[in-house]
Design a protein around this nucleic acid. Sequence first.
DNA 1: CTGTATCCTTAATGATACTG
DNA 2: CAGTATCATTAAGGATACAG
Lengths: 130, 130
Amino acid sequence: MSGMTQEQGGLVYNVFTTGCPSRGTLEHVTGRWGGLTLGALHEGPLRFNELRRRINGVSEKMLSQTLSALERDGLVHREAQPTNPPRVDYELTPLGRRVTDRLLTLIHCVEDAMDDVLAAREEYDARQKS
Amino acid sequence: MSGMTQEQGGLVYNVFTTGCPSRGTLEHVTGRWGGLTLGALHEGPLRFNELRRRINGVSEKMLSQTLSALERDGLVHREAQPTNPPRVDYELTPLGRRVTDRLLTLIHCVEDAMDDVLAAREEYDARQKS
DNA sequence: CTGTATCCTTAATGATACTG
DNA sequence: CAGTATCATTAAGGATACAG
């Protein structure tokens, strides 16, 4: 398979290589809506429309698409009750929780850095004008 | 400013809110090329074309665009020698290193999970067929 | 070598309407 | 409620040429 190397009997995945499947999964996790979806589910299971309200700005279509990708990758579990009206709960799998923990650490790091980031932007923009 | 709350005298940024500037920075960090660029620079300073060769698949245009955004956010420092031919080195700032450390932890977590992810996909696809 | 500018193509997203 | 389908729009990306 492309983008992977063999090493001591185990397959080694490398996101830096085109064609490595890990690149796609990383994109699902860090994509515009993927990350926010995982973050929202970190606090506990949520229904479809609960998620929509939490993730400010996501459309039905994108949320549906995002959830499918995450479910297919084994990061999110989908539990559908066969009731009427239907009720569907989404929750993180153990694997999803591991990934999301790391993702949230990154997110919080970025949020904490924003004062510095905004200051850097002002300086950069000022330098460009001159 | 939109997307931020005030709390005990400090500004609180929240990527889950539309309009919060942290959302943009997170996208620079986790975007298709931003993450790979930061990851490549983690090992040390690199020149423009060295970066291009490292980041398999990136075009001149996207790399240039990505580097500008990261520089503006204060995550990457650009050092241009006024020689001919020109030589430009890019390296992480201390802030960029903090963010990149978290990002690489996430990336490695995803890479390590890929065997499970691929297995989950097969199961998902099999379930869809039936 | 290190980019910028342009054009063009494709992929992502959003709005809307509709189904079970 | 929980989606899917369709269409229109927009944004991202790639190829190429060229400038400093």
